[in-house]
C-alpha cells in the first residue's frame, strides 16, 4: 500500500507539472484529469473511499469536463497555440518558479520542523454514512451556506454569460 502511495504521488506530481506547463489547453486538461485520478488513489489509500469517488465523479467527471466544453467552444486553434507557446518561454517561468520554490521551502520547513503528535486512534477507513452524519450533524449550517454559494455561482454564471455588448469592457490594444 505504501508503495502504491509513492507511485500515485509521482504520477500526480508529473501529471500536474505537465498540466500547468502544456501549451495545448485540451492536453493540459487531460493531464490534470490524470493528476486528479492519482489524487483519488491517494485518498483511497488514506482511507477515504467516498471522497475518492467524489474526486473522480465530480472533479474529473464534471468540473474538468466543463473546462473541456469551454475550451472546445472557444475554438482555440493552432495560431493561438503558437501564441501560447510564446507566452510560456522558459524565461517567463524564472520568477514564478523562484517564488514557488521559496514558498515550498518555507512550507517544507514548517512541515518537517517537528514530528506530528501521535494520533489518538489508528487510522480507519470511514464509511460514506459517517461523512453524511457529520455533514448533516455538526456541519449542517455549513451545508446550507454551501448551497447558497452554489446558488450564487449559478446566478452569477447565468448572468455573466449573457451576450450584452452595451457594457464596454475593452482592454489595451483591442481594436476600437
Amino acid at each position: 500500500m505504501t508503495l502504491a502511495f509513492y507511485i500515485a504521488a509521482a504520477v500526480a506530481l508529473a501529471a500536474t507539472f505537465r498540466a500547468v506547463t502544456h501549451a495545448d489547453a485540451v492536453h493540459s486538461l487531460l493531464y490534470f484529469i490524470v493528476s486528479l485520478l492519482a489524487a483519488a488513489v491517494i485518498f483511497y489509500i488514506l482511507g477515504a473511499p467516498f471522497v475518492a469517488a467524489l474526486e473522480i465523479i465530480i472533479y474529473a467527471g464534471a468540473i474538468i469536463v466543463l473546462f473541456l466544453f469551454v475550451v472546445m467552444l472557444l475554438h482555440i486553434g493552432r495560431g493561438q497555440r503558437r501564441e501560447e507557446r510564446s507566452w510560456i518561454r522558459p524565461r517567463v517561468w524564472v520568477g514564478p518558479a523562484m517564488l514557488s520554490a521559496v514558498l515550498l521551502a518555507a512550507t517544507v520547513t514548517v512541515i518537517t520542523a517537528e514530528p506530528p503528535p501521535a494520533p489518538h486512534a489508528l487510522p480507519q477507513a470511514t464509511a460514506p454514512s459517517d461523512v453524511g452524519v457529520s455533514l448533516f450533524g455538526p456541519y449542517v449550517v455549513a451545508v446550507q451556506l454551501a448551497a447558497l454559494l452554489l446558488l450564487a455561482g449559478l446566478v452569477g454564471a447565468s448572468h455573466l454569460r449573457r451576450h450584452d455588448k452595451s457594457i464596454p469592457l475593452r482592454a489595451k490594444g483591442d481594436p476600437p
Binding site: A12, T16, V20, P96, S100, A101
Partner: peptide
Amino acid sequence: EHVMLLAAALFAIGLAGLLA
C-alpha cells in the same frame, strides 16, 4: 509528513502556473 510534502509540492506547482 509525506502526504503533506506532496500537497505542498502540488500547491507550489499550481502557484508557479498561476503566476507564469
